[in-house]
Computed example of a mutant assay.
Amino acid sequence: MKEAMIGSDMGVTLVGGGEIGVDDIPLALGHAPLLVAVDGGANAALASGQEIHAVVGDFDSLTPEDRARIPADRLLRIAEQDSTDFEKALNSVRAPVILAVGFLGGRLDHQFAAFNVLARFPDTHCILIGETEIVLHLPRALSVALQEGDVVSLFPMAAVTGRSEGLKWPIDGLSLAPDGRIGTSNQALGEVRIETDGPGLLAILPRRSMAAAITALAASRPHAIAGQSGAPLPARA
C-alpha cells in the first residue's frame, strides 16, 4: 500500500459512505477542517457544500457523476482489495487527530470492520462519530474530562490489562478480552484516567464528550508530527 499522501496539522475529517447526521460534517470540520472523502462518502461530502481536499479508496462506490465533479489531482485511487476503504484512508492520512463520520450506524459488518481498523492503527488518533456516541482506540494513557454519570464503555479488541481512576468500577487487576471479560456500561465519576498495558482497548463515550476526547488525545501525544501542512501532499508510489 502507498505511504501517506495527505498531511494536515489542523486535523482531518474523513467522510465515509455510511449513515451521516445533518450536523455530523459541520461538527467534525469545526475541529478538523481538512475534509477527505472515503470512496462513496464523496456524495455526502459534495452535498455538504464543503471543499473536498481528496478522495481516497478503490472507487468501487464512487459514482461517475461524483467523480466528474472532483479535480483529478484530488482523486487518490488505491485499487487493491485486501483492505477496507477506511484502512486505505488511515494509511493515507497523517494528522494530529482524525474525525470520521459515516462509519457508525447502518450495516453492522461495516461497523465491526471500522472497529477492527481502529485496533490495528493504535497510534493513530482517530475518533468515530456516531449519532449519540464516539469510539476511539485508547492510547497507553488518557485523561479525559467527563461528566459524572457519563457512560464509559471499554471494549477489548485484543487481550489487554490496565488501570483506571474516576470510573465507578475500576479495571485494575482485570484481564479484558473480546472472548472474555469486557468493560461495557461503566460510569464516570468525573474526570477519568485510563492506562493500558498494550494496544487493543476501544472506548465508547458520549458524543458530547468529543471536544474533551480531542483535547485528551492531544495531551497524550506531546510532540506534533513534523512535515505537515494544511493541504494534500502529492501521491508517492
Score class of each variant (00 low, 15 high):
residue 50 Q to M: 13
residue 93 V to I: 15
residue 210 M to R: 14
residue 161 T to E: 11
residue 84 T to R: 00
residue 17 G to R: 10
residue 84 T to W: 01
residue 232 P to Q: 04
residue 21 G to H: 15
residue 211 A to Q: 14
residue 167 L to T: 06
residue 77 R to M: 13
residue 162 G to M: 01
residue 176 L to N: 05
residue 176 L to M: 15
residue 51 E to R: 13
residue 74 R to F: 04
residue 215 T to E: 14
residue 158 A to F: 06
residue 96 P to H: 03
residue 151 V to G: 00
residue 8 S to Y: 09
residue 40 G to P: 06
residue 213 A to T: 15
residue 72 A to S: 14
residue 112 F to S: 14
residue 56 V to R: 00
residue 215 T to C: 01
residue 37 A to V: 02
residue 47 A to F: 03
residue 35 L to E: 06
residue 109 D to E: 04
residue 139 P to R: 00
residue 237 A to L: 08
residue 118 L to F: 08
residue 237 A to G: 11
residue 199 P to S: 13
residue 26 P to Q: 14
residue 231 A to F: 10
residue 169 W to A: 10
residue 8 S to L: 06
residue 150 D to Y: 09
residue 135 V to G: 09
residue 76 L to Y: 14
residue 184 T to H: 02
residue 68 A to G: 13
residue 94 R to Y: 01
residue 219 A to E: 06
residue 75 L to N: 08
residue 20 I to E: 10
residue 35 L to N: 08
residue 209 S to Y: 11
residue 15 V to M: 06
residue 236 R to W: 03
residue 33 P to V: 09
residue 63 T to P: 00
residue 233 L to V: 01
residue 116 N to H: 13
residue 60 D to I: 11
residue 97 V to R: 10
residue 112 F to M: 12
residue 176 L to D: 06
residue 91 N to W: 02
residue 47 A to N: 15
residue 124 T to F: 01
residue 27 L to E: 14
residue 214 I to K: 07
residue 55 V to R: 07
residue 179 D to Q: 14
residue 79 A to N: 12
residue 79 A to H: 08
residue 121 F to P: 03
residue 170 P to F: 03
